[in-house]
């Protein structure tokens, strides 16, 4: 059984750019332990002799490609439709530098 401590949670927060509120930390750690426990269980399955399969299409061995031809029209409107903030046809986000 894997145990998740506060350091593990802090690392996860950093990577996910999230901050978990103090009162929710205990609960979150318990949920993460459950998740990891599930993966641990999967790891117990004996897979010796089984080739890793990246995709179900590997059964057909057929490539799925697109031709290098422009098929999309001007997409600005759709792309920006749900933007919480926009300016000059661009998304506005908090300053990144």
């Amino acid at each position: 059984m894997i145990t998740i401590n506060d350091t593990d949670l802090k690392k996860a927060e950093l990577l996910a750019k999230l901050s978990i509120e103090p009162e929710k930390r205990e609960r979150t750690m318990a949920e993460m332990e459950k998740l990891f426990g599930y993966v641990e269980k999967l790891k117990k399955v004996d897979t010796t002799g089984v080739e890793p399969l990246a995709h179900t299409s590997e059964i057909t061995k057929e490539n799925r490609f697109r031709r290098d031809e422009v098929t999309n029209p001007d997409g600005a409107e759709g792309t920006l439709f749900n933007a919480p903030a926009k300016k000059d046809g661009q998304f506005v986000v908090p300053k990144t530098v």
Partner: peptide
């Protein structure tokens, strides 16, 4: 199938795939 032409107006050469909209599926350019 969005164009890669340089110098277009912002976000005009975009679609659900290249803006990561949920449910969109990428298909590889040969």
């Amino acid at each position: 199938g969005c164009s890669t032409k340089f110098g277009a107006l912002p976000n005009t050469q975009t679609c659900p795939v290249c803006t990561g909209m949920p449910g969109s599926l990428p298909v590889l350019n040969k």
